[in-house]
């Protein structure tokens, strides 16, 4: 058991690496977040953040779903302009999560609007892991 355990950990590490490996931009960003302290990106935690509601300073209730909707494979709608937002799920919209510049840009903007502050690296890593699975 003592001998096997490190192997299990190693295999788990390899497996999680393989999960991200199909998307260079996601791998790069996760590496950055991991280096900054987001040790284990957790898709379940990411899902919880996606669905969580926050109360803005103007009293409005905001969530990722306000514009993107609950189903990431469906299109969303900008809450104010009503402009169509293409699906977030890379499985139906391969453009998503394909550029690190866009990942950085939208995390900065949308965390500030939705939560009222920038997301922590742990939150970003978890959200990225969650969206990447869709």
């Amino acid at each position: 058991m003592i001998i096997i355990f490190p192997f299990v950990l190693l295999l788990a590490g390899l497996f999680s690496g393989a999960v991200w490996a199909d998307n260079a931009a996601v791998s790069e960003m996760l590496d950055v977040y991991i280096q900054q302290g987001a040790v284990q990106p957790d898709a379940q935690a990411g899902k919880a953040i996606w669905l969580k509601t926050f109360i803005a300073s103007d009293g409005s209730i905001r969530s990722c779903t306000t514009c993107h909707g609950n189903d990431l494979k469906q299109s969303g709608k900008h809450v104010k302009t009503k402009k169509l937002i293409k699906p977030m799920a890379p499985s139906v919209n391969p453009d998503r999560l394909s550029k690190t510049r866009n990942i950085r840009k939208w995390f900065r903007r949308n965390c500030k609007w939705t939560i009222g502050r920038e997301c922590t690296v742990v939150e970003k890593a978890s959200l990225l892991a969650f969206i990447n699975q869709q």
Binding site: K80, K105, R109, K112
Partner: peptide, 12 residues
Amino acid sequence: LEDHFGDNAELD
């Protein structure tokens, strides 16, 4: 752009 008619539209 940080408060773009109530939305955050920051750019580099």
